[in-house]
Design a binder for these strands. Sequence first.
DNA 1: TAGATTGTTAATCGATTAACAATC
DNA 2: TAGATTGTTAATCGATTAACAATC
Lengths: 213, 213
Amino acid sequence: MRESKLEFMPTYERLPSYLHLAEESLVANMEFVSGTDIAETLGLSPIQVRKDLSFAGLKGIPKRGYKTTDVIFEIRKFLTWDEKKTAILIGAGNLGKAIVSHSEFKDCGLEIQAMFDNDKEKIGKKINGLEVLDVNDLESECKKINPVVAILTLSYKSDIQGLAEFLSELGIKGIWNFTKRKIVLEKNIAIYNADFLSGFSVLCADIKRRKNI
Amino acid sequence: MRESKLEFMPTYERLPSYLHLAEESLVANMEFVSGTDIAETLGLSPIQVRKDLSFAGLKGIPKRGYKTTDVIFEIRKFLTWDEKKTAILIGAGNLGKAIVSHSEFKDCGLEIQAMFDNDKEKIGKKINGLEVLDVNDLESECKKINPVVAILTLSYKSDIQGLAEFLSELGIKGIWNFTKRKIVLEKNIAIYNADFLSGFSVLCADIKRRKNI
DNA sequence: TAGATTGTTAATCGATTAACAATC
DNA sequence: TAGATTGTTAATCGATTAACAATC
């Protein structure tokens, strides 16, 4: 099976920032937000914002803009953030703790219901009200929880690829991979490799470029 | 001043994964790595890997591949990861802690020399051997340290944009922004917005797409 | 009404992929 | 030598931007 790529990735990456702005506009009691304003605030072109919003199914009103509540409702629906997605997290280190403790993910429908580690020191302890379970119980726990998403925050020295394959057998639909090792699967599973170093690489390149301008 | 964009961003994002593979090949005593193998392991096309490596200044040898030590040396140099970059981190929450404790960044030249917070509870405490300083002392501390990079891991409810402008006046060259609020600056500063929700948005879209295949 | 904003179609730009020559 | 791999030029594809019509 040839792996087909998700189209419009850049658009999906921008949508959360529009949602965030619309939420702030709602708090400020603004009934409408204009694409022009959004573009200005985010340093984007107005055409791009309009294209993105139209892609998410939004219709605006000339001269006024987009209805604030519509923007929030439609983007959330478009991204399936209005649906609950049960998740597990593997790797109860600092990053794992940070993610589990980050209350905002819940607004995106992400419900982390279990976290795992292989370190005897960590197993049994509670982090943000969630007990750290033994990674050896992954299979039995998953059969209870039936998670849709797995978040990987373990050391890259582990067998990440093998773990991913196991998770796919357990019925996971998407893997949010924060480790350094890229995951490649044949099966029909969504994988987002979120390694920090990719971003740092871009930052370094941009610093270098600007030095030479 | 019209903000010009960094070209070849996708290439820069991929380079760290090639570096990582080359480092593993070195440990495994492999003198050469082939672009074909790299591509296979990372789920990319061989042409793309060759193009990327050539962009980073690497020359391979037909039938053998690229010299492992060359790949490591050249990519690290190309990304300026062989140069020390002093950094500060603002926001000593869970994510801030995770980043400061992440030893790998040091291999990329990133030396976090101070971390700040505005929470009296946190100020004075040590995290991974680094004392949390009062964010009110940002200016005086920066004059001592002269940081190149600022890492922002504070709550998005703070005035991120204002902080970024202040940092730019203090001579910061690059901002690694983990907050939800996008930063837009006129000045000649590199900014990488690394908001987690952009990635989660893509993951959700991909899960949704595959459900309908 | 005039002006501001949306929406759509076409043009441009940049990144990826294909084709194939070069070579150890 | 034959086969595997690199390197380069051209073609394709997808995303962004431009131009402009539509409209409240």
